[in-house]
Amino acid sequence: MGDIQVLTSDFVNLQISTSKNDISFGERRFPKDITISELKAKLELVTGGSCATMRIETYTKDNKLVTSLDDNSALVGSYPLEDGMRLHIVDDFQLRNELDSGNVPKFELTEEEYSKRNDSVKMFLMKNKMGKYNEEYAEKKKQMEQEEKKLAESIEAGLRCKVSVANAPSRLGTVMYSGTVEGLQGYWIGVKYDEPLGKHNGTVKGKTYFECPDKYGAFVKPQCVSVGDFPEEDYDLNEEL
């Protein structure tokens, strides 16, 4: 009997979520022969987080923590990652900036002073040619932004749609908005769901992008949206049992 050889795919399909859990980035395909450092650079393109300050946690389909991808020099394929699992991105730098410091005076630097510091995130990225200081990254980011913009522009307000996001069943709704959202990177689709499965009423951080009942609205990436003939179902939420 000959030797038994087990073959695995060179790629893995993973869902992506961030510490801002009201945003869904859908599924992405990653090669297993890249390092965790290179994976972080790719995730920076997708999420807008900083590859220098992000941590990556992995979860099963039923949301059980598997491990943390904490060795930047290790290959993606060296970790127990399977199709359908979720990468959860935590940006420590962003989380520190979002903490409420109350009346504690904030330490602020001018752009010129910040540029002179050797211990800054900016200097780390420049020295290691990461993020926007990497020419290949910058070109790839530009291409992705152009593709996302083109896709967003093809999804017009008023169209019926189906939304498929990470760790959630498909949801039906109506496109209400297509464009940019203040404070978020890239292009987004504002959707009014047929059921109260959203996050808001079309207003985010005091700015109104569209109007709908509370908990019916959501913003998702264009890649998560399919438009078509999706008839609205009759949900009688007030029906008594």
Rank of each mutant, 00 (worst) to 15 (best):
L75W: 01
L81A: 05
G49T: 06
K64P: 00
G49M: 05
D71V: 12
P80C: 09
S68K: 15
D62F: 03
C51S: 15
N72W: 03
T47H: 01
L75F: 11
S73A: 13
I56D: 07
I56E: 06
E57N: 10
T53G: 04
V66R: 14
T60M: 10
A52G: 01
V66S: 06
M54R: 02
K64Y: 12
L65D: 03
S68Y: 14
T67K: 08
N63T: 07
A74Y: 05
L75Y: 07
N63Y: 12
T53F: 04
L65E: 10
T58W: 00
G77I: 04
D62S: 12
D83N: 15
T67R: 07
T60A: 12
T60D: 14
Y79F: 15
T58D: 02
S68I: 14
E57L: 11
K61W: 00
E82W: 00
D62G: 00
S78I: 00
T53C: 09
L65G: 02
D70N: 15
T47G: 02
L81H: 07
L81Y: 03
E82L: 10
V66D: 07
T53D: 04
L65T: 09
S50E: 02
M54C: 10
P80K: 07
K61M: 08
G49S: 08
K64R: 14
N72R: 10
L65W: 13
L81E: 02
K61T: 11
Y59K: 09
T67H: 08
Y59G: 06
E82F: 08
T53M: 03
L81W: 03
T60K: 09
S73I: 06
S78M: 08
C51Q: 11
L65C: 06
T60F: 10
Y59D: 05
S50K: 06
D70F: 12
V66K: 15
T53Q: 04
P80A: 11
S73T: 13
S78C: 05
V66C: 14
A52K: 03
T47C: 11
K64T: 12
T60I: 10
A52F: 05
D83C: 03
K61H: 04
T47K: 03
V76Q: 09
E57M: 09
A74V: 03
G77Q: 05
L81K: 05
D70C: 14
M54K: 01
I56M: 09
D83Y: 01
S50L: 10
L69K: 07
S78E: 15
S68T: 14
T67S: 14
A52L: 04
P80F: 09
K61V: 11
S50R: 04
G77K: 07
I56W: 08
I56H: 08
R55P: 00
V76D: 03
T60Y: 12
S68P: 00
T67A: 13
T67Q: 08
S73M: 07
S50F: 06
K64D: 12
C51V: 05
N72I: 12
D83H: 13
P80G: 08
D83A: 03
C51M: 11
V66N: 11
